[in-house]
Write a protein that binds this DNA or RNA. Sequence first.
DNA 1: GGGCAGTACTG
DNA 2: CAGTAC
DNA 3: GCCC
Length: 887
Amino acid sequence: MSDLEWFFREEKRILDMPEEPDEDYLARVYGYRPSEDATVAHERGTSEAPIKDADRPRELNVDMSESLNEVQKVTVPPEDLHINQGMTTKRKSSTERTVDPSVRHSKKRRLSPEHKKGSASVTLAHATGSASDNPDSHELHQTSVGPPTDAAGPQSPVARPPIQQPVVKETTITSPAPDKGKAREHEANHVDPPLHPYSKSTGRIIATNNDKQPDVPSPQQASDDATRTTHARYSSHAKRTVKSKVIEVSTANPGPAAAPSSSSVTTPAAPGPSSSKVSGARAKKAEEPKPKTDALKKEKSGKKKRELITPREYAQRLQDNLSEVAATRKSRASPYLRGKRIYYHGGDMQYASEETRKRMDYIIRYGGTVVPTYDPEVITHIVTTEKPSAPAFLRATGLRSLRDIPNHIPTVTWSWVIRAPRRVIPETPVEKGGESTDVADNNKGDKTEQIEDSSSEPTADYHLIVHAAFKDRLDAGMPPPPSNKGRSKPQQSATSAASGPSRPTPQEPKSGRDGSDTSIISEFTVDRVESKQSAILDFDDSSFLGKLAAGPNGAGVPGRATVTDNPKSSLNNKSDSTPEVDSLAPFYNQARAEREAEDLRSGLSSEEESAKEIGNGGKRAATHAVSKKRVRRFVHVFCRAILTLIQGFLCDSKAEEHTACANQDVVNKLQELRELHKAKLSKEDTWKVYTYDKAIRALRSYPTRIRCYEEALAIPGIGDKTAQKITEILQTGDLRRIGYEKTEDIEAINMFQGIYGVGRQTAYKWYANGCRTLDDVRARKGGIKLSTCQEIGLEYYADFLTVPYESRGAALLYYTGDDIFNRSLRLKANKMGYSLNQRGLYQGIVRNPSNKLEKLNEGTIIASETEEEILRILGVPWQEPHERIRG
DNA sequence: GGGCAGTACTG
DNA sequence: CAGTAC
DNA sequence: GCCC
């Protein structure tokens, strides 16, 4: 939370920053004076002596023989290509096992050079020659580029204010000379917040030449939807074992994400959703003071003119017309909002905006009730826009503080509403195991009911994100600190909770259909301890716990029984005192069972002990009262213990399909962030990447949708910060941090890193030397040097990035065959009246008789997606890639 | 506060 | 051996 | 950034 707040503050600060920061401003904010830096820059500038492109001989005037040798080798097995990379022995350590290659291979590359050998030999020699030409250029650049460490690394916000003067540019980027590594590290230490989100934006390097980034998809973005990955296994040469080939091809449409980022230094926000979000938020803020105009504007833009009406009036009207609306609703929508009496807050509070109306309509359409005014006695939910303004909300509701919102009333954002129905569906798969081990009939009953009723009853996670709208209310429903009165919750909660003993999770709409939903609320309301239970019991349902507890079968079920009974008893029996005692009780049983199981598996870890400890602590506390912290801790430890159990060691299980994942969206975001850190040089970032890797891996293999902060935190490898980020993603669907980190330089560097054999150091160096695009690199702009390996990597980078998915077959063919094979294949195709290129096999191409190269029409593509298809048409028997060598 | 995998290649 | 890369 |  504090992290988030910090970001918000930072965001504001940056946004408030003048375009061209003046010295005073910088001095004030950073305690820094540009003039100083300029001096430094100047000093350094002397040694800079930019190596002009023209000055350097680029062509292969050197011993091609040697390089060709390399090439020859390359031509056979890929390993030889990796000459200078340490990856020969193994790709990763056992722990890192290839559980999800996509993490590591999330970049576009990893072209196993094997496939390209044929053609590689052609291009290679040239490259090698040039590379060896400038033995000294390397040194030169290092010194010239590496800034005095005290001046600031790219990471140091303090020392890296936004400087736009070209002079400084080169110096602003740090390509730490080897010997300066230490100093850099040191310096990195006083970057106060682990990572200054604006370090980049404020201090980032400005392109010397304004080469606009071409539309080269940046690695990370292509990695997701826009890309498909074809993993094909090809056996290679005799002694070589099977190697995996990964060709990543992008779909024809790079997608919006590929849009180049804006270059403005003062708008750190990256392109895409994040930026729009930010600005959206800002716009909203600005909107508040002068709602009228905005409303008018909005209305104007709307197609038909509507009378101005306040949200309240609109809601009222809906209410009044309920019956007729309901009638229309029946036909099409499932009433999953039935029983929910929603107070909607958002947008323009003076006049209902288009959006507001739509949303209200939506609520009605799906069976909910729109309550015009905030009335805690009536409403069951508060729904807000994605980023509600607390002050505005308070104004509208007349509340003094967000704390005045009763805990039993969830405050959720609109996305919660629209995601609710979807959430239900995919969540069901896990239940099976639970059933098998679990005995509870009523439970089963619930399930069936839940299923048939799935449209109307969201699953548990639904409740656990409940107070998402206002971060300040995240603790709502948490076990109240020792004081006991929080317990005297709304009557309904007690009743409903009691009514649904079958299941602690709020699934059951059992009782009154209409009032049913209140049970959910009450469930959540009773206190957080219980809601925690819900979460955990959900695990239970999800089978793993059940399975684990199978041994003490009696015990396994009891766990549930206890739990189930528990809320009831606590509510019924003890109107006030120490209800928490019981709420924790089920955990003990479970924990014990877990521990036993754990012992059995000898996978014992310290978790066990802490779990025990906590358990005892919990017990102790039970006699008094359970502190919030303790409960949290307990939940944390407990969840983790379970995870340890169910997951075991990574090496115990095969690599899972890294396809669908319950938290895929979160994974994607984290991965994106990981990539951004990967582009940075500091040790700190290095470790962050390491950590993100672990976290992502853990998240991937996590079986169910994460529901709350604590749940995330419980996952080994996910700590406070990451859990917060996850929470943010869950709640907002976005991670602001990404926007802050994603800057031009980072993206360029990332792109360079996409080249096989290029890591962050090299990428940085290139950038520092003025390279911004792959073409720059090809042109050896700034006098950069490329190793043989990098040459090849570069050669094929674009190819692999730009092969449209549909063309993968043809592309594979193209890349796996050697020169001769390809030529012959194409020749045959031509003879047969087709035309083959790397995009596909075409038919009906008419060429100009006098100029064969000139196509008179495009022809029609008849095959491209698979190699088999193409070969079949051409009447060529299938051949493994290694069999396609003719040269 | 310190560790965070292990190994190979380049220069 | 340090730096770099995977 | 996480964990011990």
